[in-house]
């Protein structure tokens, strides 16, 4: 430690040239994190949807792209209406949704407790992290042939793909969330008399719940992807199956209609989980 004035650093700074000054950039709409007006937000939002949609309308109406490749919006709507009226669409939507509920539901039931185990106990981390860390890099779609050999062509192999595709990510994401529970919160709970199980139930889980819902929301989107992949192989119903079938008959308009349905359901799930998250995580906002 320097204490005496005698050891002061000699002031050679007088010999230095002044530091060059930079001109200060103006604040614009593209300054990082700068707020933009409500009107600008609305315009950008509308444009982001209107531009691709108009491009679609113009391209298909002009005849630049044949209708077999790019059906006009009107054809897509009527194809959608057609499948809806015949009752086909309802069956497909329900079949696909049921598969997601079963496969992804099972994955959530396994991954959330496992993730809590890994996040809360170092032993859990040491025991599961290496295997799960490896397995998550194996693409679920690569398991399809193997699962067909193991489980046959029916429902079990489709549910298994969904499960494999989501369980590992959801486990690791849950474990991360649980590891984020502040240490003082756990320590103080012990000093208030809580036992291990009570700390898990009354502190670790409530603190992690919003983050776990976030993980589920991200992986629900993945599940929705995997179910369509699973249905491309040997199905007799489902939205993925409907797409393959429409392709066989070159019904591009129907493919588009099913894609729209898939998108709408996806957004609905996302919004629903966002609402749940907002409710559960009110304390964190």
């Amino acid at each position: 430690m320097r204490t005496a004035l005698a050891d002061r650093t000699p002031d050679v700074r007088t010999t230095w040239p002044p530091l060059p000054r930079r001109t200060r950039p103006r604040r614009t709409a593209l300054t990082i994190r700068t707020p933009i007006s409500r009107r600008a937000t609305t315009i950008l939002t509308v444009l982001s949807l209107a531009v691709p949609f108009s491009a679609w309308v113009v391209l298909s109406a002009s005849g630049a792209v044949p209708a077999t490749f790019l059906p006009p919006p009107g054809a897509v709507v009527s194809a959608g209406w057609e499948t809806a009226r015949s009752g086909e669409l309802a069956v497909d939507v329900w079949t696909t949704t049921r598969r997601v509920l079963q496969g992804f539901g099972l994955a959530v039931l396994v991954s959330v407790p496992l993730g809590i185990l890994m996040g809360a106990f170092q032993a859990g981390q040491a025991a599961f992290e290496p295997l799960i860390g490896l397995l998550r890099y194996l693409p679920a779609s690569a398991f399809i042939p193997l699962l067909i050999i193991w489980l046959g062509l029916g429902e079990p192999s489709k549910i298994a793909i969904l499960f494999i595709g989501t369980v590992f990510f959801n486990t690791l994401m849950t474990a991360d969330v649980v590891r984020g529970v502040p240490r003082p919160l756990i320590d103080v709970s012990y000093t208030l008399g809580a036992r291990r199980g009570e700390v898990l139930r009354k502190v670790v889980v409530p603190h992690s719940l919003p983050g776990i819902i976030d993980a589920v929301r991200v992986n629900a989107a993945a599940a929705w992807n995997f179910v369509v992949v699973a249905e491309l192989v040997n199905s007799t119903a489902g939205l993925g199956y409907r797409i393959v079938r429409a392709q066989r008959f070159l019904q591009t308009d129907k493919i588009f209609a099913v894609l729209v349905v898939i998108g709408v359901i996806g957004v609905t799930i996302d919004v629903a989980l966002r609402l749940v998250r907002a409710r559960v995580g009110r304390w964190a906002a």
């Binding site: 603190h207 304390w283 964190a284």
Partner: peptide
């Protein structure tokens, strides 16, 4: 600081 249960 930071040892209160934020959800309670």
């Amino acid at each position: 600081n930071g040892s209160l249960y934020p959800w309670r």
